[in-house]
């Protein structure tokens, strides 16, 4: 079995007195696309923000590609591409300059930078807006610029927080195909609160409720379990969320 690219153990985060994430543990191995599900305020974005090194955890262990996020955050950031929840970008910059800046910060230059830029521009279909300022781009294009920036350094780990937010239905389909294509050799963790979207693309589901993981299983296993119980995937997931709510 290959070593996990993301390893989270006993992860806890408090905001003052409020416990936002409570002892979360999971691993993501290369080739896995993990859908991170949960209702609003369940702790999805907090976990992703800790993984991105932005938020320091209150306690627990967090490793990306073998690097501890507290001890070596820069090594973690170099091996990770992030599309954050609000996808805040430098609005005044032109798309091409922004991609070059992010690539440069990740140590790309010359032919390698040009090659990677050309690849992300082609795959995220940004050619038509390359010379535009980010502020002039539509929501869908902004989302694609964020995705292109997350991919420009060819990272082994991808964190995508609500990645299809703002995309039209055709773009959502193209995005799913693209993520599947990116998957070999990479660990992809993406959050959403739309089960159908997650089930369509993920190989595994992680469901979080009240800051705790209440379901962690492969999608094919869950579908089998649901079929045996005469239920559907949505019913199974909702059951686990309700049970977690009841236990809390």
């Amino acid at each position: 079995m290959t070593a996990p690219l993301i390893r989270v153990a006993g992860l806890t985060r408090r905001y003052g007195d409020q416990l936002a994430v409570d002892g979360v543990s999971f691993e993501v191995r290369p080739g896995e696309i993990v859908g991170f599900l949960g209702p609003n305020g369940a702790g999805k974005s907090t976990v992703l923000r800790m993984l991105s090194t932005y938020l320091p955890p209150t306690s627990g262990e967090l490793e990306v590609a073998g690097h501890d996020i507290m001890r070596d955050p820069l090594a973690v950031r170099r091996r990770m591409g992030c599309l954050t929840e609000h996808n805040a970008l430098f609005d005044g910059m032109r798309v091409r300059a922004f991609l070059d800046f992010v690539g440069g910060v990740h140590g790309l230059r010359g032919d390698r930078l040009a090659e990677r830029r050309a690849w992300v521009v082609e795959r995220t279909e940004l050619a038509s807006v390359l010379k535009k300022r980010i502020a002039e781009c539509s929501k869908g294009f902004r989302q694609r610029v964020g995705l292109a920036a997350a991919l420009i350094h060819d990272p082994p780990v991808l964190l995508l927080d609500e990645p299809t937010h703002g995309l039209d239905p055709l773009q959502v389909v193209a995005f799913r195909d693209f993520v599947r294509e990116l998957s070999p050799g990479r660990a992809i963790l993406f959050s959403s609160h739309i089960l159908a979207e997650v089930a369509e693309i993920a190989t595994r589901l992680l469901v979080i409720q009240g800051g705790r993981i209440c379901l962690d299983a492969r999608v094919d296993e869950l579908e089998q379990r649901a079929a045996q119980a005469g239920d559907d995937l949505e019913g199974l997931v909702l059951d686990s969320v309700r049970r977690a709510e009841g236990a809390a």
Partner: peptide, 9 residues
């Protein structure tokens, strides 16, 4: 964009 700065290497 502060979060963007803090997640760049």
């Amino acid at each position: 964009t502060f979060e963007l700065w803090m997640t760049l290497p």
